[in-house]
Design a binder for these strands. Sequence first.
DNA 1: CCCGTTACTCACCGATTGGTGACAGCGGGG
DNA 2: CCCCGCTGTCACCAATCGGTGAGTAACGGG
Lengths: 219, 219
Amino acid sequence: MLNEAINLEILPEAAGEPERRVRDRGATERAILAAAKGLLAEQGFQNFGINAVARRAGCDKQLIYRYYGGLDGLVEAIGADLGTWVKDRIPEDTGGMFLLTYGDLMERLSLLLLDALRDDPLMRRILAWEISENTEQVRRLSEARSKALALWLERMRGSLAPPKGVDAAAVNAVVIAAIQHLVLAAAAGGQCAGLSLKTSKDWEKAATALKRIVRGVYG
Amino acid sequence: MLNEAINLEILPEAAGEPERRVRDRGATERAILAAAKGLLAEQGFQNFGINAVARRAGCDKQLIYRYYGGLDGLVEAIGADLGTWVKDRIPEDTGGMFLLTYGDLMERLSLLLLDALRDDPLMRRILAWEISENTEQVRRLSEARSKALALWLERMRGSLAPPKGVDAAAVNAVVIAAIQHLVLAAAAGGQCAGLSLKTSKDWEKAATALKRIVRGVYG
DNA sequence: CCCGTTACTCACCGATTGGTGACAGCGGGG
DNA sequence: CCCCGCTGTCACCAATCGGTGAGTAACGGG
């Protein structure tokens, strides 16, 4: 009778999950990857482990070892999956693309990046992970992320050249740093350096300041 | 004889540690606090736990519960200790204080903050912790940190008023965000958004960009 | 000298972690 | 048909975690 009770719980005849996977390795692999990404996005890297992923994927952790070679391989798979971030995030029309100056471009890109990060919890968690740890795991993931981001920036930039006389690479790095930290701090505590970042009105203020800064450097 | 062997190992007659504390509660409390701060600064918040702190302090974890009421209290004590950060970090002469404009001031403050964070591993770890977690523990510590930083900024600012027409609070928050993220990313991976941040030459470039940005907004 | 308070250590608890070896069940190829 | 390989499950391991209760050793006042 104990078995019966367990069966009733375990087998979701018509329960939440639509159908039970049956000996479909591809589907299982996908489920594991999805579980890992979801777990990382929702809980962060603190409680990210083999057991937690397997629990969420609804399978045995042994399969993670078999199919991905452990957590490291799984993390690498997440990194590989990040390649799709670029094309998912490129709006087909970039506002008519009537971008006249490098300043126009950077202002637009800054705001786009801000919004893109604002509603991408997984990317945010990876970013926070990068900053907090320096293991090989994280380094690889970080590389994939920065590559994706760089590719995105390149695609968006087109062929507009930065003005002479300014170290555009350094300036842009500072601007990106600001954007990333604003989003991370907001997601974690709803504020940054005393500036509240909760309502959309708060974000308008931040965006305005950001625009002002970009305009200040690039005219 | 087993006792003898243990004694030889445990009691460092003339071993690494200078002297063994003997029934000095104050010293033990200080040792625990120092161990906690050191551990957090060196290892980060990942392996920060009761056992690790007690191990480093060279005492039983029970004492942490007794003297600090557990990890939470200990973290709070670290936060309280952060109050001294302000006066430790205020240079007596702020360069003669011949600061003419708000732009002069913010440029100077930005660089000072950058340097202050660059060589304060504990503050960096706390910053990273803030961004990665949102527990009550972290929230309190975060509050203490931001209060210390705000006080520091206020002390340094003096009575110079920001120019009208710009949302100085928002702009400054963005600048501070940039500084914090630059330092965190550099400490973790030696770069930020493709910009290498290892050599002092790298940092000069970053500082120049930062100055340019501040000058761009505040003229 | 004794005795109570204080400072401190030790041994243990249940839970959870990452990791591994053994086993069960289905399916396809010989 | 049988058997082998693939998919998936389960039971177990040592280590570590946070947390607690009981016990020990030094100190100080009477």
